[in-house]
Amino acid sequence: MINTMKLSIAPYLLLVSLFVPCVSAHADGRIKGTGGVSSVSGAGGGGLIAWATLTSLASEQQRGFTAFTTYTDLDDFTLEVAGAAVNFNDRVELSYARQRFTIKANDAQIAQDKYGLKVRVAGDLLYGKLPQIAAGIERNRLLDPATARAVGAVDDNGTDLYVSAARAWIDGPFHRTSMLNVNLRYSKANQYGLLGYGGDDRDTRVQVEVAAAMFLTRSIAIGAEYRQKPDNLSALREDEATDVFVAWFPNKHFSVTGAYVMLGEIAGAAQQNGFYLSIQGAL
């Protein structure tokens, strides 16, 4: 059950992230911070949800690359994620993430792959009349489907679709640059897909996700996220996910995000709260 190889890319990604600031960069055409960070699905965003922003600071005629690793320590579980994403011309984002979920009680693990495609359809986060509007697709595949089958999930793989809109106000509340992001997601995922897709107690297929953030300085942003989740399994209860975060952008090539996440009941364990730490390197 324990798959030591499954997150073996993490140390390499970490290394890449650390050396990224030393490499001369060409994809820095947007303002620091406007590329956000890397979400747990690998797509550019906040932490628990993808945002309409595309990863890295690449603008038109630029190609950007990000790599990240994230560790979340909940009461009864841990979630480790590592991944990378590319941004072509601030128009198309491709992302990949490997998730490894560990049940502390018995050290059992569930790994999952997430492949993402996101396209900026219209608008711009900072400028003009339209908010930045993006559409995305996430293809998810469990590497350890046994648990999902045991709890009554229908599939061990699934596809999420989402549309996302984000707007930043340069002179926002308290004269701080602030952002609001709203997503509509079509998903059958149980606990991000870690417990499979679909179930015997089919719930809503369309979920709302919201994020708000504010830059206190040019380098430090605070914010909160909310993610509605379906509750498809009769045997297990699933709740919404929320988080509050602080992100630090010391330069255009590196960020550190800390969060407190409140994920509700997971696999029968009530009130799963904990700390989330993520680092991202960008080229």
Partner: peptide, 9 residues
């Protein structure tokens, strides 16, 4: 909450 925040702007 978000609407209230943006109203402050």
């Amino acid at each position: 909450l978000a609407a209230l925040l943006s109203a402050c702007s």
